[in-house]
């Protein structure tokens, strides 16, 4: 996943657990414009699988990248429509 992208906005859901990381990501994406990239910072280890599942099932979003940085799981989602 070497796609070039610039983060438009960051959503901090550290300390929150299922289903909030996904629910709040959806809310934050709704407020963005097409092409924007949202960075999601979470500590919920389930967010790696959940954000991926959400992005693959939901139209209009594309998961660009996911990485674990210490205790923080970072997700990068682009709004595609």
């Amino acid at each position: 996943m070497s796609t070039e992208y610039t983060v438009t906005e960051t959503l901090d859901v550290k300390g929150e657990s299922c289903p909030m990381p996904v629910v709040k990501t959806k809310g934050a994406i709704d407020d963005l414009s097409e092409g924007d990239v949202l960075e999601v910072l979470a500590t919920d280890s389930g967010s790696m699988s959940d954000l991926k599942g959400w992005a693959e099932t939901t139209p209009g979003v594309e998961l660009l990248d996911q990485e674990a940085d210490g205790d923080v799981f970072k997700h990068y989602v682009r709004k595609t429509e």
Binding site: C18, P19, V22, V23, T25, K26, G27, W54, T57, T58, P59, G60
Partner: peptide, 10 residues
């Protein structure tokens, strides 16, 4: 939990 997540799926 399922309801709010499914809503996030659209």
């Amino acid at each position: 939990i399922l309801a709010s997540t499914a809503a996030a799926f659209g």
